[in-house]
């Protein structure tokens, strides 16, 4: 089910403010693509434009093309809600729904869209998604307890379970581990490895070791200059980016000389 994404000449605005300029990227299906770069260079902005979450912010807009499996996401007549059903997202801060139990949180994507399903079908989806998110064993005895009662790392994996429960084609993750401790981080990284066989994953991370560990391709974003929009400096296979980068700026960033 996984799909590839082509981004062509993408300019992203917040009102009149051009945040990111001229992004061109090909994201392969069934692979993990990492976006790295200093804070404020537009990684989250690019990620959010891949499933039309960008326009949720008042005044935000996009110019250019994002093509998923031959279909332009920003074409006329494309329903952003339908796009988001295909391209799921996991956020930096774990955000389970506070009014719902663990069980209901996993089913939220289905239930909130009023999809009718039998109890047995729902049970199957919950178990499959929680197993997929490596959380099943920890919560199987307390599925009816509130999702907010879990630890931060568990909450994040619950959010991942919630995202994969609707079986999207692509999973976008915006710094999914930045609020987590090392153990939970490694649990999530293991999970990303496993999910790769079924999903196309794009992950934003601050942590270069993490990018090196989990991703197949890496894109390095940077600001052109202070006060100028962010842009994609280099996009290459991860091994190349970390051993023999094309651009001096990438080299400087990953060797820790700036940023």
């Amino acid at each position: 089910m996984a799909k590839s994404i082509d981004v062509k000449d993408l300019d992203i605005y917040y009102g009149d403010f051009l945040a990111v300029q001229g992004v061109n990227v090909h994201i392969k299906a069934r692979s993990v693509t990492a976006f790295i770069g200093p804070s404020g260079c537009g990684k989250s902005t690019v990620l959010r434009s891949l499933n039309r979450m960008h326009e949720v912010i008042p005044g935000a807009r996009v110019e250019g093309k994002v093509v998923v499996d031959g279909q332009s996401l920003y074409g006329a007549g494309v329903d952003p809600v339908a796009v988001r059903r295909q391209i799921g997202m996991v956020f930096q801060r774990p955000n389970p729904f506070p009014t719902m139990s663990i069980y209901e949180n996993v089913l939220a994507g289905n239930r909130l869209n009023a999809r009718k399903m039998k109890k047995s079908e729902a049970d199957t989806i919950v178990e499959k998604s929680l197993r997929g998110a490596n959380l099943w064993n920890e919560v199987k005895d307390r599925l009816s307890k509130p999702g907010m009662g879990l630890s931060g790392g568990q909450q994040q994996r619950l959010c991942i379970a919630r995202a994969i429960a609707v079986e999207p084609e692509v999973l976008l993750m915006d710094e999914p581990c930045s609020a987590l401790d090392p153990i939970s981080t490694s649990a999530v990284e293991d999970l990303i490895h496993e999910l790769k066989s079924d999903y196309t994953i794009v992950i934003v991370t601050h942590n270069m070791q993490q990018a090196a560990r989990v991703s197949d391709d890496t894109g390095f974003f940077n600001l052109k200059a202070v006060g100028e929009p962010g842009h994609l400096v280099e996009f290459n296979p991860t091994t190349k980016v970390f051993s023999n980068p094309e651009e001096p700026a990438t080299e400087a960033y990953i060797s820790g000389r700036f940023g």
């Binding site: 499933n51 979450m53 949720v56 809600v81 339908a82 796009v83 988001r84 059903r85 295909q86 799921g88 997202m89 956020f91 801060r93 955000n95 389970p96 729904f97 506070p98 939220a108 994507g109 909130l112 869209n113 009023a114 959010c159 919630r162 995202a163 609707v166």
Partner: peptide
């Protein structure tokens, strides 16, 4: 929190829902 609204949008839930 806006986080919750975004979580819901990201699941493909329309705004009114």
């Amino acid at each position: 929190p806006d986080d919750l609204r975004e979580a819901s949008y990201a699941l493909g839930v329309p705004k009114w829902r």
